[in-house]
């Protein structure tokens, strides 16, 4: 039976049919590990993140890494051509990936990436928004909710101030950005369901 890995964190969606499930999993893990490490390095640079307890740092990263990656890799999704670029550098059309078994998650990710890109944020704004995505006090397993909440509020204030300064005539941008947070949660939930299904099979 042909199998495909439609996550762009792979080098290619095509899976060698000779490889065992374990080997496929190992290869997949090898592909996304550097990206996850980059997320951890990014988190370490968020002022105040390293002051949180280590279990809370782990909980935030465990819960938020996917969402951070969605924001960071939004450019892999080209909504004009309706293509997705895999880490191996090759582009695949959304229709091709759908035929390979990609679920509604793919369409949702393309839609999200389009809306985020259309906001035209600078690198600095995107970076601060990513920090807000990661530092969310309502993630499961947080021990010291007050500390995470305090850091989250500081980051949100900084983001609002930066957006207001850079886009004085576009006050809706900040609101639109905050509304992206529940969208990311929803994508994260869909992705978790996919992962469970993938592991089970």
């Amino acid at each position: 039976r042909r199998r495909h890995l439609v996550c762009p964190m792979n080098t290619s969606p095509h899976v060698d049919p000779q490889k065992s499930g374990h080997e496929v999993w190992e290869e997949f893990s090898h592909s996304f590990t550097p990206a996850v490490r980059e997320v951890v390095e990014f988190a370490k640079k968020i002022p105040g993140f390293r002051d949180l307890s280590q279990p809370d740092q782990v909980s935030l990263l465990k819960a938020g890494t996917f969402e951070v990656l969605v924001v960071r890799f939004a450019s892999l999704f080209d909504m004009k051509d309706r293509t997705v670029t895999f880490l191996g550098g090759k582009k695949y059309s959304v229709d091709t990936l759908r035929a390979m078994g990609a679920s509604d998650l793919l369409n949702s990710m393309v839609d999200f990436s389009e809306k985020l890109t259309n906001l035209g944020l600078s690198e600095e704004e995107m970076s601060l928004f990513t920090a807000v995505v990661l530092v969310s006090a309502d993630r499961s397993g947080i021990e010291n909710v007050n500390s995470v909440e305090a850091l989250q509020e500081t980051l949100i204030r900084a983001l609002r101030s930066l957006i207001t300064k850079n886009h004085p005539n576009e006050s809706a941008i900040f609101t639109k950005l905050l509304l992206k947070l529940p969208d990311l949660r929803s994508l994260n939930n869909m992705h978790s369901e996919q992962l469970l299904a993938f592991k089970v099979h």
Partner: peptide, 27 residues
């Protein structure tokens, strides 16, 4: 199969990446 992040080995990668920094701090 209750925790996709753990299944993916994500927690292990995160802990190692965070710990690396702790070791640097101790140095």
């Amino acid at each position: 199969f209750g925790d996709p992040a753990s299944n993916l080995g994500l927690e292990d990668i995160i802990r190692k990446a965070l710990m690396g920094n702790l070791e640097e701090r101790q140095d």
